[in-house]
């Protein structure tokens, strides 16, 4: 474990906590894409299959359970909570997220480290996580005013993977140049997708104005 990866995990955890707080405190999920949240549940389920078979550390197991639990409860709130589900922008959150999941799965069948169920599903989760934010970014462009909590949520979500990129550079130089192409390239794509959001988020923060994405 290095400080970059710990910072990345904490940023990721903070983003999820901010989203849960927004939903629970305001009893609203306006501006949040259910499609992206469902993709994240799939990412965690397919990535943490070895949760009970491989023990790495108390931290690793705890965080996996927290990520699984929080992501599933967010989807539950948005789908089934009687008050929250009324606030879901159903008619704007129209991204066909299966068009994202299927190519990722096919790519995982083609390009992986070894051809086993666990490894192919893990690889699928890495590819899927890279594009899972797309429905959320599309929804942000459609929803005129983005509330601060939603903006902060997306910013922290993008920042966590950027910190992971730094962690991979650090591990490359400190762990006998071990190469991890699949997470590296996926992580690069994932972080790049946030580029224009980062630009407008930082601009709105600097000029102290409402965050607005161009349509």
């Amino acid at each position: 474990m290095n400080v970059f990866r710990l910072a990345g995990d904490m940023t990721h955890l903070l983003s999820i906590i901010i989203l849960l707080l927004k939903i629970r405190a305001t009893k609203s999920c306006t501006g949040i894409s259910l499609k992206t949240q469902e993709l994240y549940v799939i990412v965690f389920l397919t990535r943490y299959l070895d949760l009970f078979t491989k023990y790495i550390s108390f931290y690793n197991t705890t965080m996996k359970l927290v990520f699984l639990g929080t992501s599933i409860s967010i989807v539950w709130y948005m789908r089934y909570h009687k008050v929250v589900k009324q606030t879901y922008n159903k008619d704007q959150d129209t991204f066909r997220h299966y068009f994202l999941a299927i190519p990722c799965f096919l790519l995982a069948l083609l390009i992986h480290h070894e051809f086993t169920v666990i490894e192919v599903l893990w690889t699928f989760s890495i590819y899927l996580e890279a594009v899972a934010i797309l429905p959320q970014l599309v929804l942000l462009q459609r929803s005129r005013n983005i509330d601060n909590l939603t903006g902060n949520y997306v910013f922290l979500l993008g920042a966590y993977r950027a910190l992971y990129l730094v962690n991979w550079v650090y591990r490359y130089f400190t762990e006998n140049h071990l190469v991890r192409w699949i997470p590296w390239l996926s992580g690069l794509v994932q972080t790049t997708l946030y580029a224009d959001f980062f630009y407008y988020y930082i601009k709105s923060w600097k000029n102290n104005e409402k965050l607005q994405l161009p349509a």
């Binding site: 995990d9 990721h12 990520f67 480290h113 991890r180």
Partner: peptide, 10 residues
């Protein structure tokens, strides 16, 4: 490839 890559990340 033979290099074992540890899956110790989240």
């Amino acid at each position: 490839t033979d290099t074992y890559i540890p899956k110790d990340e989240l």
